[in-house]
Amino acid sequence: MPKIYDRTYFDRWYRQENLGIGSRQALMRKARLAISTAEYYLGRPIHNVLDIGCGEGVWQPVLKAERPKISYLGLDSSEYVVERFGRTRNIRLATFGQLGELRFDEGFDLIVCSDVLHYVRTPELKRGLRGIAEQLQGVAFLELFTADDALAGDTDGFIARSPRWYLSTFREAGLISCGSHCYLGPHLTAAVATLEVPMLW
């Protein structure tokens, strides 16, 4: 049966100390890393963030605490999430693959997709990545786990792909690794030094 991302799912994986995924402190470190990397390459403060597969939008208050004036948009396939947090955290209903067709009024300085891609089937993943690359003005924080990682947490539906597969697929879409789950889009790759993005050589 397909996974159901309802309140029971989020209660199990995000609100139980013995099973919970991550902590607020860890999330704050990730957010600061993503923000600082994007601002380093953009050369200015970030103005907006797109959070794909955002779940209950836990990145939203953390990002707002760091950059109160940013515009945040979350996308998730869970009807429960949109019903409960859609208005307060600006979350809309969409799947990862729909990014291949969805377009917004402006590009995004930071795109976040955390703990999602290793559950997405290949055709949908490739469609969505093209959309990310086209709408990315700064840096994408694409946190994921590969076949080489020791995965802790929800293994239901986990797709074990190699690191080489991900890097090659990202590069095909126009995304280049700059380290620590961060990727540059086509707008920035031509403006960086060679050793900042080793995949270029």
Rank of each mutant, 00 (worst) to 15 (best):
G100I: 10
H47D: 12
C182S: 14
A190E: 14
R171S: 09
F141A: 07
T37V: 15
E172M: 09
A193W: 06
Y14R: 11
L73Q: 13
W59G: 00
P186W: 02
M199G: 13
T8E: 15
E39L: 12
D149V: 03
Q16L: 15
R84E: 15
F108Q: 03
W201I: 12
Y183P: 01
R24S: 10
G179C: 04
L42Q: 11
A160G: 13
L151F: 09
F104E: 08
V112D: 00
R89Q: 03
T169C: 09
F104Q: 03
R161T: 14
S180G: 03
R84K: 15
I46H: 01
Y40P: 03
D11E: 15
G138L: 07
Q25P: 00
L188A: 05
L27W: 10
R44G: 08
V116I: 13
K64C: 02
T37N: 07
G107H: 01
E79Y: 08
C182G: 00
I4C: 10
A190T: 12
D154S: 06
L136I: 11
T95K: 13
G43T: 14
Q16P: 04
L42R: 11
V197M: 11
T194R: 12
L27F: 06
G86M: 07
K64G: 00
P61I: 01
T95H: 08
V82M: 10
E196K: 08
K126W: 05
R92V: 04
L50A: 01
Y9I: 12
Q16W: 10
E83V: 08
G138E: 06
R171I: 00
F10G: 02
C54S: 10
K30T: 11
R32C: 09
S180K: 14
E196D: 13
R7D: 13
A38W: 04
G128E: 05
V116K: 01
L200M: 14
L200T: 08
P198F: 07
Y9E: 09
P163K: 13
A65V: 00
Y183N: 02
S78D: 07
H181T: 04
G20M: 07
H47V: 05
N90F: 03
A133R: 03
A94C: 04
G107I: 05
R121K: 15
S177R: 02
A38C: 11
M28I: 14
S168H: 11
Y40T: 15
L129Y: 06
I111Q: 02
H47R: 14
T169L: 02
Y166M: 10
R130P: 00
F10M: 12
G55Y: 07
S114I: 00
M28P: 00
P186L: 13
E143L: 12
L195T: 05
E134I: 07
L50S: 01
I4Q: 14
L129I: 10
Y5Q: 07
F145Y: 12
I4A: 11
A140Y: 06
A65Y: 05
L63F: 13
T189E: 14
L129M: 11
A34P: 00
M28A: 15
T8M: 03
I35G: 03
I35A: 09
G57V: 04
I176G: 00
L188D: 08
A193R: 15
P198V: 05
L93D: 06
I35D: 00
L188E: 10
R29M: 13
V81Q: 03
T189S: 10
L125G: 02
A152N: 07
